[in-house]
């Protein structure tokens, strides 16, 4: 890593999130998260169902603010209380469902033209033009899915894997400070999932993207990234850096979980798959 590698891209300070405050449905989804992400970190995040992984990414993306007292700092700017559309200047995101990240009635070109302007001011210039189309084709070509010849196709006509790959390009084309992937291969069939995973890694490496990737697959979490974070009941309970991660096994992870949480690792209730 270069000498910029120690720059903090993201800091979460005492981030809490409580849903349905004061009702019988009250849930503490995040219970005091402290996390610092450095430039070019690629963090794999695992944790049981309901651990708060998506909620944490939602807070980073500004979908909702954390409880008072918490802070979200990206690229040195305090973005805690900015509305979501202004958070987006910093964050690129791929959701679990392909239909959330793309607009199905609009064409591939229109989707990319929207994505290209993330973090820039929108005005009365034409949304797309010849140079942009060339840029979009170039970006799509690296996927190797032939999408570069279908700029005018409505996105609704693409397969799930194609849409998710497009989402990936859309999330990265404007070079956000941090890329958030939330189980972005979970709804794809195994073969397509591997393809999209490979494409993700390729784009992340090429663009030197700072990344947080949630996965429910321990094997994938071990295979990808330079850092591994495990969440449980709204807290970060394990945070493993590059050196230890390289030699880590699934058994080590199970042990780390049991030690940190004081609970027995139970495949059914914890729902961490390690096929």
């Amino acid at each position: 890593m270069g000498d910029t590698a120690n720059k903090n891209v993201l800091q979460l300070r005492d981030v809490k999130k409580i849903f349905s405050h004061g009702t019988i449905d009250e849930v503490t989804a995040l219970n005091g998260i402290n996390l610092t992400v450095q430039e070019q970190d690629f963090i794999s995040i695992i944790g049981s169902n309901g651990a708060g992984k998506s909620t944490m990414l939602n807070v980073i993306a500004g979908v909702f603010p954390p409880e008072r007292g918490g802070k979200v700092i990206i690229d040195g700017d305090d973005v805690t209380n900015l509305p979501e559309y202004r958070h987006s200047a910093y964050t690129g995101r791929v959701w679990q469902e392909p239909q959330v990240g793309t607009a199905s009635k609009m064409t591939i070109e229109e989707n990319l033209a929207m994505a290209y302007l993330r973090g820039k001011k929108r005005g009365l210039k034409a949304a797309s033009n010849k140079e942009l189309r060339a840029l979009f084709r170039e970006a799509l070509k690296q996927l190797g899915l032939g999408l570069e010849d279908r700029l005018n196709a409505p996105v609704g006509t693409l397969s799930g894997g194609q849409r998710q790959s497009l989402s990936l390009v859309m999330a990265t084309i404007s070079k956000p400070a941090i890329l958030l992937l939330d189980e972005h291969i979970a709804t794809l069939d195994p073969k397509t999932a591997q393809t999209v995973l490979k494409l993700s890694k390729m784009i992340i490496d090429k663009e030197k993207m700072t990344t947080m990737m949630v996965t429910h697959n321990m094997e994938i979490a071990l295979r990808f990234g330079n850092r591994l974070v495990m969440m449980h009941r709204g807290k970060v309970i394990v945070d493993i850096g590059e050196e230890r991660k390289n030699t880590l096994t699934i058994n080590d992870l199970v042990n780390a979980f049991e030690q940190a949480s004081g609970e027995k690792f139970d495949d059914d209730s914890v729902l961490l798959s390690h096929r």
Binding site: Y85, M106, M114, A127
Partner: peptide, 28 residues
């Protein structure tokens, strides 16, 4: 003309996928 400008495109996208439009930095 307007509906093909940057603002016009964001306007149309809002009708298609509001969550995406906010995620791409436009005030729905």
């Amino acid at each position: 003309w307007f509906l093909c400008t940057q603002i016009g495109l964001a306007l149309r996208a809002t009708g298609d996928n509001e969550q995406m439009v906010r995620g791409l930095g436009s005030d729905t």
